[in-house]
Nucleic acid binder design. Structure first.
Lengths: 345, 345
DNA sequence: CTGTTAGCGCATTCAC
DNA sequence: GTGAATGCGCTAACAG
């Protein structure tokens, strides 16, 4: 394949390469007719300016990266959608990397991006709050970073999250209001920022409702479907919760499965609410009360902030947290049922 | 930001740039000690070879693109996961583009990729079988293409799909076997390849079961949630199906909603099965029988084929269809219920 | 309005 | 085992 390049095109037209170049960028002045002639010929010969040559010259890549820990639930697909849309709007390309919750992988991705491949990074953190030296690389290279949903607290960067504390408080309160006294909290990892924040909301709500905390009611799970199920089973065998607040969608799904198997009726025997952005929560069995996270908006907002930084030639984003409101959508799974006075609905 | 480059690093070490270069590629011979010294200093100074310079020199980008029509359901997130994983395995980067079902957008993306940005493309087609001239660009540039799930029949490229015809036939047969006589088919667009193939399976199964086809039972929907609902409502008002086969997940969700509102019991009054790769079909109300598509595998396989082509320096993939088997997972939504003889389960 | 010139950062000859 | 020279394809200054 004799690749066409600017020189050949110039030769074919009897022009200089700079004129060709001019025809392809909109700023420099050029005779409209020449331009048209060039573009026509370019089209015919299948010429388009080589990306890497241009990028090398201007050290601009018009590309950002998304780094996410996993793809397991709707949250990230919707967030990606938001980011990609913003990128498109700004004329940027979007690279995507999935770490599978592996900080090493995350570091490796970051390293592979620091050679000019991207101008900015939007990411949701994979690890806990320990060694983030790989992120210093970004700063050294002047590549701005924006977190969404999960962040490293010690890294200087803007972080777009939901109002996790408030939502958790409210979700717990919602269970209390509907009659729950022994509320369990299901979490994947209670030591990372987001699990911690959500748990605090839960704890404070319990305290404010004068409910005593039973440590057995806090269940730390993994991401493995079977193990989650077992953890829930143990919870119910050991202690008898009457309400469950799941900090992650996947854990609530396991709850639904367990309740079917254990012949527990939701919401009669146990009430359930969880963080989720599942669009089909209303057709679950039973329709599931959710703390609805604005995933798309979170992604879009994070990207927006990144592009602002890029636009202003900032090499770093301001350390601040931007909270988008989640909303509690009560459905059957937390409905109050009254037996004692025959007014059962 | 005084960016570090190969020259500065060379100067700092009193070496030539070519020696530096050698230290970073593993083939050329270089004194191990020099190499180590270089790498150490590079690390210290935060140097890594500029991507665009290397790419320009070698005309290699180590990047592929994914182009998908939408992000609306699990299918595409799982497929992306499969593709990304393969890419990572092969040391490639992955660009992602979402067309929102717009062929113009698709064409525009393709054009923006043909300047060397990517070495290959994995895509699920956005449009119908009409004008695909934008794909010729890829061929002209020698960029191989692999379709997954949705393809353009007239384009020469490998296409990885499910066994849609067979699965549809079986799904329909499954409804028949469980007592349905008037089976509706819900489809988004019956004229694109995939809608067509699936419908053919449905039609043939009806014929082989000696059921007469009622055109009113074939419902063409859009992607809009409300409109889908209305279309289903019209279907039930006009005619009384006793089984529904939904060619797309989203349509089945609308069915579940409609049945709640219309107080129709699934599977008593109506049975339902659909294409889906929802992992939580078992906790829907009722647990939904599905034709389970191997989305992750489809993505992974498509990527694999692309990398094979890349590896063999093919500029085009063989025109062939590779079918991965879907499996029918019967759940409550299609269960046979027998009233007449008191053996109701 | 167009051509000439120089150089972005790197990797590969070819010498030594 | 290492250095000097060349060019990948493009664009921005500068001249005219």
């Amino acid at each position: 394949m004799s690749q066409i390049n600017i020189k050949k095109l110039a030769a074919a037209l009897g022009l200089s390469t700079s004129t060709i170049s001019r025809a392809f960028r909109n700023n420099s002045d050029i005779n409209p007719l020449t331009k048209e002639r060039i573009l026509r010929m370019a089209d015919e010969l299948g010429y388009s300016p080589n990306l890497y040559a241009s990028n090398l010259r201007d050290s601009k890549s018009k590309t950002i990266a998304i780094i996410i820990p996993e793809f397991g639930n709707n949250f990230f697909s919707q967030a990606i959608k938001g980011i990609e849309k913003q990128a498109r709007y700004n004329g940027y390309h979007t690279l995507i990397y999935v770490t599978e919750d592996d900080v090493e992988q995350e570091a490796s991705f970051i390293r592979s991006l620091c050679n000019g491949r991207v101008e900015g990074v939007v990411m949701s953190a994979s690890g806990e709050g320990l060694k983030h030296s790989h992120l210093n690389l970004l700063r050294e290279k002047g590549i701005p970073l924006v977190f969404f949903d999960r962040c490293y607290e010690d890294v200087e960067a803007t972080c777009v999250t939901g109002n996790d504390y408030d939502s958790s408080y409210e979700a717990t309160q919602h269970l209390v209001a509907n009659g729950c006294k022994r509320i369990a909290y299901l979490v994947v990892n209670k030591s990372i920022s987001i699990g911690k924040t959500r748990m605090q909301g839960y704890l404070d709500a319990l305290k404010d409702a004068d409910l005593t905390l039973d440590d057995n009611l806090i269940v730390e799970c993994t991401n493995d479907r079977d193990e989650i199920y077992k953890a829930i089973k143990r919870l119910f065998e050991k202690t008898k919760p009457d309400g469950v607040f799941a900090s992650v969608e996947r854990l609530a799904m396991a709850m639904l499965r367990y309740c079917v198997d254990a012949k527990l009726d939701i919401p009669m025997d146990i009430k359930l609410i969880c963080f989720s952005c599942l669009e089909i929560a209303d057709v679950l069995n039973p329709p599931l009360s959710t703390v609805n996270q604005p995933a798309f908006e979170m992604g879009a907002r994070a990207a927006e902030i990144l592009f602002e930084a890029l636009h202003n030639k900032q090499t770093i984003t301001k350390k601040q947290q931007i909270q988008l409101s989640s909303s509690i959508i009560p459905r059957i799974s937390t409905e109050k049922r009254i037996f004692d006075d025959n007014t059962e609905t």
